[in-house]
Amino acid sequence: MADLPPGQRKIPNFIIYRILGQPKIDIDRWRLEITGMVNNRLSLKYEDLLKMRQIEYVSDFHCVTGWTVEKVRWTGVSVRELISYAKPLKGVKWGYIHSADGYTTIVPYEDLISEHSIIALKMNDQPLDIEHGYPARLFIPHLYGWKSAKWIVKIDLVNEYKDGYWEALGYHERGNVWKDERFKKLY
């Protein structure tokens, strides 16, 4: 296991944030959509995701506030693979992420389709708890947790930057944990 990223400290369990409240999920109506600059817009049910090839790995979770939970086992669908089915157009630069609670965030496209970026369906071999984003959350290990949106419902592929929730409050456009990218510098 590599050392902790700069400015992080280990804690034994997740702190739960629900900045816009906890959404009620009707799993029969829930969909994950891939939209925007694509040739083939996708709308996937939970069971569609469960039928897809699952990838699994162990990785730490880093919150921008400074805590890290080590050695979490993540299981889910590769975002790169998922987006390939949507046939993205040339020129995509960002993925604008929407959650069921109205939360939004934005992720650079190269990070969104990076090797370990997944739509997580399980944590530590169990389906996600509602508090951790059931039925599905984004997880990108090298970015701070606010980018790994819980209760994800849509990935909109776009070529222009637009602030999500925390980005509008000054948090970084990318949020790479190894580069200590917590806040934008305005001057």
């Binding site: 637009k162 305005l186 001057y187």
Partner: peptide, 19 residues
């Protein structure tokens, strides 16, 4: 104006940078 904070009742953001 920002759209992403509307649910929190925020309609406008003011950014201040300094040297």
């Amino acid at each position: 104006r920002v759209d992403s904070l509307i649910k929190k009742g925020v309609k406008e953001v003011i950014e201040v940078g300094t040297e």
